[in-house]
Amino acid sequence: MEVRTIKVFTTVDNINLHTQVVDMSMTYGQQFGPTYLDGADVTKIKPHNSHEGKTFYVLPNDDTLRVEAFEYYHTTDPSFLGRYMSALNHTKKWKYPQVNGLTSIKWADNNCYLATALLTLQQIELKFNPPALQDAYYRARAGEAANFCALILAYCNKTVGELGDVRETMSYLFQHANLDSCKRVLNVVCKTCGQQQTTLKGVEAVMYMGTLSYEQFKKGVQIPCTCGKQATKYLVQQESPFVMMSAPPAQYELKHGTFTCASEYTGNYQCGHYKHITSKETLYCIDGALLTKSSEYKGPITDVFYKENSYTTTIK
């Protein structure tokens, strides 16, 4: 009895394709271990004539594949690729409408935090270190965002349907971005203890939790000093293409032309909904596939993004 075979390709990165001759009487799992086709788990399936010449994702289970996976995804987590594939199996079914010149995501599976993050990423200057993220990001900007969303979920250790947080998501993504040249110098002034300067680099240099107003941050924000008295913390120097200011959701007025974009969060910790506000020729609110415009805006804002380049204080 002759062994019926077909020729397929296996890959971990969709760049390096490895030619395989597979036995049609055995499952993919018996031949390769966990195997995925377009995100779908085909591990328990036997090869079919229609699979001839198709590319299958496999887990990096030998040295060659491990090197290829690390170079593309910059992670050695053995569960990463499987999590990416199972997320992709959902995100490829989502709709990605162009809204006001940006790629958004039609609401499904509690994905409003991903839509808000995706919209924000198209408006701030950011370059990702893992080629996987950078490639998928370019495709997302062009309207094909399924891979990018699935990668975000995998890097953030999230599953489809789980509630997510924009600030946490951005923080994970910033860790995989090139923020080497970003720098922030802060000064804390206390009447009792004097003053202390701190220099922050990388992710810490672009994120701040405690106030939404970048102007206020430049002037000074009140913080408790270690001595128990009130101290003032203010920005001395900022070198970065953008800054992200966050605070627990509270009524906040966004003035046209003073910011790049913002995240609105309605609801409580267990259950809520994100919308995205962007400042173009007027203010726009993007909620999944829905767009509304207004000249002014007041609502429960939790993150505001500002364009920056270089700032030095005039406070002496």
Rank of each mutant, 00 (worst) to 15 (best):
G101N: 01
Y265K: 01
G101T: 02
F148T: 00
T19C: 13
K183C: 04
T314C: 00
V22L: 11
K92Y: 10
N157Y: 14
Y137A: 05
T35N: 09
Q251V: 08
V3I: 11
D135F: 05
T232I: 13
G210I: 00
K54D: 10
T91Y: 08
L37W: 12
L153Y: 13
V8I: 14
Y155R: 00
G257F: 00
A40M: 14
L133S: 02
V304F: 00
G299E: 03
K255P: 02
R4Y: 11
R66E: 07
V99P: 06
A136W: 04
V42H: 09
L88R: 03
A231L: 02
T43I: 02
R4W: 11
K275F: 00
Q122A: 01
F305V: 00
T199G: 05
S50P: 12
Q122C: 04
L153P: 04
A69D: 06
Y84L: 05
Y306N: 00
I301F: 05
T226Y: 09
I105F: 00
L65Y: 06
R141M: 13
S181E: 12
H18G: 09
L121T: 06
N157M: 09
M244C: 04
T258V: 10
T226L: 10
L163G: 10
Y155S: 00
V22R: 03
K316R: 15
I277P: 05
G29R: 15
Q222L: 11
Y306T: 04
F259V: 04
V67P: 03
T302G: 01
N147I: 11
T199P: 03
S295K: 15
I45G: 11
E264G: 01
Q123G: 04
H74P: 05
P34K: 11
T55I: 13
E253G: 12
S25R: 11
M245W: 03
Q98T: 14
Q31E: 08
Y72A: 13
E125W: 05
L254T: 06
E71L: 03
A247H: 04
F174D: 02
H51F: 10
I152G: 01
S294R: 10
K92R: 11
L81N: 15
G272R: 00
T5E: 15
Y36D: 09
G288W: 01
A136P: 03
K219T: 11
I286R: 05
V42Y: 13
N110Q: 01
Q222M: 08
I45T: 14
L65E: 09
W107F: 06
F80E: 00
Y274W: 08
Q20W: 08
V67Y: 15
A205R: 01
S246Q: 07
L65T: 14
T226I: 12
T120C: 12
M24R: 13
C285A: 01
T120Y: 02
H74I: 09
G82M: 15
T159D: 09
T55R: 11
T116S: 14
Y36S: 05
I315D: 15
T258W: 00
D287C: 01
K46E: 13
C112D: 02
S79T: 12
Q238D: 04
V206P: 07
N268D: 13
I286P: 00
Y234I: 09
V160T: 06
G272A: 02
Q216I: 06
L37F: 12
Q222P: 14
I45E: 13
H18C: 09
E264L: 05
E281Q: 04
V203S: 10
Q134E: 11
K219Y: 05
A231F: 01
V3Y: 13
L290C: 08
Y84P: 05
A87T: 02
Y113Q: 01
G29K: 08
E168N: 15
E71A: 09
T5P: 11
G288K: 02
T43H: 14
Y214I: 08
Q123M: 07
V166D: 00
Y113R: 06
D77H: 06
A117I: 02
L121I: 13
E308I: 10
D38S: 10
S79Q: 08
V203M: 10
E281C: 08
E215Q: 06
T278C: 09
A289N: 12
N49C: 11
I45R: 13
I286N: 00
Y234E: 07
A69C: 15
K275V: 10
N100K: 13
V189Q: 08
Q175Y: 07
N178K: 11
K46N: 11
V67H: 13
K275L: 03
T11K: 05
L119W: 06
Y57A: 09
A115P: 02
Y96C: 07
Y138G: 12
G29I: 06
G288H: 13
Y138D: 14
Q20M: 10
A250T: 14
Q98L: 10
D38A: 11
C285F: 05
M245C: 14
R66N: 06
C149Q: 08
P60N: 15
E71H: 13
A136C: 03
E162L: 01
D13F: 00
E281V: 03
V99D: 00
F305H: 02
Y28K: 08
Q237P: 03
T116N: 13
T282G: 12
Q270M: 14
K92D: 05
F80D: 06
N89T: 09
M24N: 00
T292W: 06
T278A: 08
Q196S: 11
Y297T: 01
G164T: 00
G210E: 04
P224I: 12
G228S: 03
F32W: 15
I223Q: 08
K275D: 03
N16Q: 11
T75M: 10
A87M: 01
V189W: 07
K106I: 08
L133M: 05
Y84G: 05
T278S: 13
V221D: 02
W107H: 04
S86A: 14
A262S: 05
D77L: 03
T5C: 13
L283T: 05
L179S: 03
T314F: 14
V58W: 04
I6E: 06
K127H: 11
I6A: 14
G299H: 01
L200W: 00
E215K: 07
I277K: 04
K46V: 14
K46G: 08
L290P: 03
L102A: 01
Y311G: 00
L254F: 08
Q31N: 12
G161L: 10
K54T: 12
Y214V: 09
E144R: 05
C149E: 03
Y311F: 14
I315N: 15
L163Q: 10
M85Y: 14
T64K: 13
Y72M: 10
Y214W: 07
F174R: 08
K127G: 10
Y172F: 07
